[in-house]
């Protein structure tokens, strides 16, 4: 068990640190690359929880497809130079930002303190299986699943309409 905990700690640290880098990098391409590292760490944590299917999908969909599109857009826009530093910032912006951030932190601490989290345990063996997830998706959660597909279809149609209108 000790070995697994060590692996979890390493993955958690990698996830948090890379998440931090995503925010603090000035260059959008570097942020995107750190986000990929973050996805890998999270996929590793899924693996530790015996959710192999989710881990594989995480890598295929997020790291393998969505981030490629992100990189594609960043490179097409040719953001080679980082954005010029913001020289002037209104005092109201600074104060407002700090107050809002503090409020969010308090809210998170309050909520986490209030909820009694169940002791951490991995999913029962087989729950991470493709078969059991598919069974759940197509029986108990059929309606949400189909509604999500329709939503995605609407998004695709919207994207096509937007792209076509610009061509005319």
């Amino acid at each position: 068990m000790h070995g697994l905990q060590m692996i979890f700690l390493v993955l958690a640290v990698v996830a948090l640190v890379s998440g931090g880098f995503v925010i603090f990098q000035r260059h959008p391409l570097r942020s995107a690359l750190w986000l990929i590292v973050n996805f890998f760490a999270v996929a590793g944590i899924y693996l530790l929880a015996h959710a192999e299917f989710i881990a594989a999908i995480q890598v295929i969909v997020y790291a393998g497809a969505i981030m490629v599109l992100f990189l594609f857009v960043i490179m097409l826009l040719n953001l080679r130079q980082p954005e010029a530093e913001v020289r002037f910032m209104h005092l109201g912006q600074k104060v407002g930002g700090i107050v809002l951030a503090g409020f969010t932190v308090l809210l998170v601490i309050y909520t986490v303190g209030k909820v009694a989290l169940p002791p951490g345990k991995s999913a029962p063996l087989g729950l991470g299986n493709t078969e059991s997830i598919a069974k759940l998706l197509f029986t108990d959660y059929l309606l949400p699943f189909e509604v999500t597909s329709v939503l995605l279809l609407v998004a695709i149609v919207g994207a096509v309409v937007l792209a076509k209108s610009r061509l005319k």
């Binding site: 192999e52 299917f53 295929i60 790291a63 393998g64 490629v68 493709t130």
Partner: peptide, 15 residues
Amino acid sequence: NVGLLYIFAMGSLSV
């Protein structure tokens, strides 16, 4: 047990 997905995952990273 997700062998095929693993292979596709690695393939999608090669880009």
